[in-house]
Design a protein around this nucleic acid. Structure first.
Lengths: 396, 396
DNA sequence: GACCATAATCTAAGACTCGAAGAAAGTCAG
DNA sequence: CTGACTTTCTTCGAGTCTTAGATTATGGTC
């Protein structure tokens, strides 16, 4: 209690530089003048600060804008080639490794199929490590410029140096993925839940842009989510917050794979919807099976919309977000056709004051954004001031 | 986006002074030396800062501690008599106004009975205003030292200068309580939901002390709550977050007075529990009626515990708190006897990783803490640096 | 080509925290 | 009672930082 916030005058500079870098990263190319306005810093400070950033190559010039009768503004932007981030998506069927530049363009990728039955932790770790080497080699990026590796995995990730992962889907009880990876690379590592990384991608580059308080709900085979408070992902006391899939919507209801009853995920992931409709589908066929159900106008779909509305209602009452984003492949499939119905179902269960139906929107990034989001885990500390050599805040 | 955090070197000082003041307020009497340790500031800075605080009377000396063979430490504490805060509890049956010093000792109080049938907004406002004058007069505190008035009301409070209150219980649709009060006093006003003020009281002085991420659940006649993230009450985009009472636990279940179905409050407030048990009780008799139910071992009680567990499970999965506090008179009554059962019910519905049953504890402050909590609304900005004449951040 | 408008940089000044040295206020041994 | 020792608190110089205002840079307009 009490130990927080800037202390010394040097931290102040760090904080201001981070603020400026953020403004430049998210506010596209901008002139020093505009930066002065958006950050609230004086023109002088912006000038000296950008001089430093230009010299170190973090920022580069990006053309000019000639004004009506004055010195033209020189635009600045974050140098996309100043650093690179590796994002890893550990999925049900494959391990996907991608290398992004700071503008989040994919520079190289590698995929490794995984037998969906059994996920051997060591095999997964090996895939990741060889993938990292592969994408760095393929992209011909100087290894020193790689800022780190972000990994999105299913399940709950315990914080700490080991980064224990608990993922029922994979049968992982307490897999020390962080430690396994640490043994094979020197790069900074960041491990987090895949739904959270995807949520952060949606927050930074998708439908969540600019929101301070938002909920990003990801409906795929299962249900995951991300809670954003104050512009950042809320992780709670032990990195396990935002487990939207295990929000209860029917006390004593259907059994969930987590062991409890009545979880949202027991009703609403593609798996659960198909199961409720009595359709037997392999995980590879889920997509077409769900599409067929939607086509037929199965009553199960209507129920699902209704239940989704109930879940959204709970979330809105608890978090009072300014925006709710529905993503994930199944979520997008449902929402694509039935967004109005979803909004109506949520509204029917929610008091008018905290909720406006039009704040519920669809995700924009599609289901492949897990790796992108994992890479943002690497970029985040870079923006927060690890730009200059200093403490390296590796989570794992 | 981007405009946040300290900018100039002067903000730095403000922030550090706030940090020091907080440490002193919550860390009891402490020597400069200890403060240097807990805040991370250098001894020199603590010295100059406390000199200023002493001069302005915010802080006073509080005795000495003689050490073994060195200069004795001079203890400092926040001067309880430096400022006063008025806390108001607008309840079902009465309006309670109390004046606290900064150490939160009650210096004066006034009560006004209200016919529970109809709450005329103007009458309530008049009660509050005369109450404020009365307690200031009774306590003989110089009016200039009164830092403000905090008001806890049922329902949802919309932010903004009007402080619109929507309280179904009172039949208030959009009562501009802030504006009504503003017309009668010059004091800074803070209006918030009563469950939130009580939660803040529990957080500052009760079972929530020291928690950064906590949930405080208040079960009285209805159900309310407070969500604490990063040591502060989370209010969401429109001050309406944390409406725990309208968390859904049974899709399509019992009708709630909010109009929706399956809300926690439709099952779990004293009113709902008695209704489910088929007991007819006036609001004055609720307490004894519930006690009787508990005595008899009614099956409804067991169900209630079970449903409370379901609700807690949802909350734990969403917020991953380090502590869950159960308060409110009905909550304390239930929890006093059945805490173990409640913990078990929550655990049964929750994955082991984010949840340890012993983090669920009972509140310590009892149901009368609404006014106390309302007063903390006034103290909070004082601690955050409004100590020196500066912006007056009135919410209402 | 002189004049004007806007952007970026330079310079001096004020504010802040820190480390180190010094002053204050005791204890304890002889 | 005195002098050495210990610990706390204060003072002082140094180093950083941001800002306001002046100055330089870079173009357009007449």
């Amino acid at each position: 209690m009490g130990t927080s916030g800037r202390r010394t005058v040097r931290d102040l500079r760090r904080g201001n530089r981070a603020m400026l870098l953020r403004a430049l990263y998210f506010g596209g190319p901008a002139s020093r003048n505009e930066l002065s306005a958006t950050t609230g810093l004086s023109a002088a400070t912006v000038s000296t600060m950008t001089a430093g950033l230009l010299e170190s190559g973090v920022v580069v010039e990006a053309g000019q804008v000639d004004s009506d009768g004055g010195r033209p503004r020189v635009l600045l932007k974050v140098n996309p080639a100043h650093g690179y981030a590796v994002g890893v998506d550990v999925g049900e069927t494959q391990v996907k490794v991608e290398l992004f530049d700071l503008a989040m363009n994919v520079r190289a990728g590698a995929h490794y199929a995984v037998r969906s039955a059994k996920h051997d932790p060591e095999l997964v770790a090996r895939h990741i490590l060889t993938g990292v080497d592969a994408v760095i080699a393929e992209s011909e990026v100087p290894p020193a410029q790689v800022l780190g590796v972000g990994v999105g995995v299913p399940g709950i990730v315990e914080p700490g140096p080991g980064a224990l992962v608990r993922a029922k889907t994979f049968g992982w009880e307490a897999v020390p993925l962080g430690a396994l990876l640490r043994a094979g690379t020197e790069l900074p590592l960041y491990v987090d839940n895949g739904a959270k990384t995807m949520g952060q991608a949606e927050l930074w580059f998708g439908s969540g842009q600019g929101a301070r308080d938002a909920i990003i709900l990801l409906v795929g085979s299962g249900v995951g989510g991300t809670v954003v408070t104050d512009g950042r992902i809320y992780r709670g006391a032990g990195m396990a917050a935002g487990e939207v899939g295990h929000l209860k919507i029917v006390a004593g209801g259907r059994a969930c794979r987590c062991g409890a009853r009545g979880c949202l995920e027991a009703y609403l992931g593609a798996e659960a919807i198909l199961d409720r409709a009595g359709v037997v589908a392999d995980s590879a066929d889920e997509e077409s099976a769900l599409a067929r159900l939607l086509e037929e106008g199965s009553p199960v779909i209507g129920e699902s919309v209704e239940l989704l509305g109930v879940g959204l209602s709970s979330l809105v009452h608890l978090f009072n977000p300014e925006r709710v984003v529905i993503g994930g492949w199944a979520g997008l499939m449902l929402g694509g056709r039935l967004l109005a119905e979803i909004r109506a179902a949520a509204a029917a269960n929610t008091q008018a004051q905290p909720f406006q139906p039009e704040t519920v929107v669809l995700g924009r990034l599609g289901p492949d954004a897990v790796a992108l989001g994992a890479a943002t885990l690497v970029v985040e500390p870079f923006l927060s001031g690890a730009a200059y050599p200093e403490s390296v805040p590796t989570i794992a």
